[in-house]
Design a protein around this nucleic acid. Sequence first.
DNA 1: TTGAAAGCGGTACCAG
DNA 2: CTGGTACCGCTTTCAA
Lengths: 349, 349
Amino acid sequence: MKNEKDKIDLADANFPTAKHATLADVARHANVSAMTVSKVLRGVGSISKDTRARVKASAEALGYVTNGIAGALSAKKNTTVGIVIPSISDSVYSEIISALSDSLTEAGLTLLISESNFSGQIEERQIRMIMSLRPAALIVTGGIERSISAEKLLKRYPAPILQLWDADNPFGDATIGPSHLQAGRIAAEHFLKSGLNKIAYVGAELSKDICARLRLEAFRERLAEENIALECFVDEASPRQAASGETLVNQMISSGYKPNAIFFLNDSMALGGLRALLKYGIKVPDEVSVLGFNGTSRLNTVQTQLTTISMDRRAIGTTAGVALRAILDGKKPEKIPPTKLHILSGTTG
Amino acid sequence: MKNEKDKIDLADANFPTAKHATLADVARHANVSAMTVSKVLRGVGSISKDTRARVKASAEALGYVTNGIAGALSAKKNTTVGIVIPSISDSVYSEIISALSDSLTEAGLTLLISESNFSGQIEERQIRMIMSLRPAALIVTGGIERSISAEKLLKRYPAPILQLWDADNPFGDATIGPSHLQAGRIAAEHFLKSGLNKIAYVGAELSKDICARLRLEAFRERLAEENIALECFVDEASPRQAASGETLVNQMISSGYKPNAIFFLNDSMALGGLRALLKYGIKVPDEVSVLGFNGTSRLNTVQTQLTTISMDRRAIGTTAGVALRAILDGKKPEKIPPTKLHILSGTTG
DNA sequence: TTGAAAGCGGTACCAG
DNA sequence: CTGGTACCGCTTTCAA
């Protein structure tokens, strides 16, 4: 590598791969000091109308884009917010992120998003990676088995930490999301009030998903109070998707067990389960009531409308964004109530 | 604000909100120079086994996390890659992003994601914001009306620029995605080979979505070659979602027009359209053939399987990731062929 | 094998 | 209203 100075050549400013113009370049062009340019561009300090205009023109002419890296290092302030979610492509999280991103963008903050694929180990790596960029705040998702070291890392990070999704296990300065224990109870009540009493649960990969376990646990407990036993069909090795739901229900029915109600880990699995039930000619909801969780498949369905437990996912993102902005503004974190859950009634029970 | 030095107190290293340990802190702790620590931690230069171990232990003890901001500024190298997509919550993009993110993470790169909501103006703002963080590369999504100034900004950015999604209008160092003109032709052929000849198109917000317009254009052209006129039902003011598809088909049928084939802007609108058709008791595909675009609703459906034009979306992300890594490694960009499209046959035509 | 010095491109803090 | 100076925490370069 050469070490020659290659300051931007003003004449070259429009050349495609010209180097970035710096504050000093703009200053030279406007015949003022770098400090003055900095102030004008940030809109601080008092600068004469005249210089202000000249500086702005020069910046424009040179296509100056401020260097946030240098700014962050110098001011020890950063405009990025890091977030780690289990999966970007799962609409449950992406809707939250989308709303959150909108809210943060309004405040001039940029989101650094990464995914953990529900793995505590990957999560830790991602947290490290993101932390090295010294974000103004860090947002993590509850419900996965977080490593001890990741937790330690988060606890000592000198900036706000928020947690999403798992209101039953608060973490950091604020936690925004539904209570999955409550979801489980709602599911149980839903079946109970229809007098259903032969009940099954279908899920997958529970070892990776604490929230799903909480739902199941509360569901089972509430049923136990009514002396109803719960039959579980869970495959730890399959993904939490439609195909797995279909397979598990196939197994259930062909094993000779036929419940009158099934609670699924999520909507996808419920849809798969529905396919299997229909294949066996089982009437839904007359013979078997089916309940999902999340309210995500609703929009993508033609005839059958899955009955499911739903919530306003965008609201989670927006609430998190608003809370974070408040904390960053120095307000002290308020306790945020769990996101409201409701049964979205469909045609499946 | 006080200006006192407050270097990290070693004894406090485990205190929750302790400041970040710096290279100098680690150096002091290990009784070496900062330079040596830097080398050990990056694994460069030749360092005695002994010091190497001591430094590593100290870093560990102090919970040192490298400061990527300072590193990037100093080395003029950055490990972030910026990307602007129309919508994070649209599974079409989020699946691409997810695969891309995995691919980049492998290479130690972090994704800075932001969304434009299909607005050229917002896109420009996001590009500016991301650019100020001097990412090692920038990825944008084709198909939206990019502002002139955004384009200029991208063109002069001295790092690789990739474009996603719109293979018909290449941009930057490489473009990865399907040809929407081809998609339109495939759709036309699909209907033609079944001898269908009274054909409608249903869409929304075409003004925002260049790719959808390309599909429509090629579709119309191919039909015109066979002297088939195309009837369009487009609402510029509604979102490109199921509800709009339902409304538009309702309007179509109640206006007395009944085609024998409909090509929809995307799968969501097609599903909405299907609902409307079923409501009118119209047999699909016997009376009307229905074709979607994207292959996204497939997994979330119970009975009706939408026939649609699909592609491997994760492959787009992976290909983009691989291409980017190659370019970043100094290889010169190769021309990437358009992503393959195929008809995913379902039960709707 | 080790480390001192000189920045990277900004911003905080003062002094003029 | 304007600008000089001293860093922010790291890496590059080069000398010891």
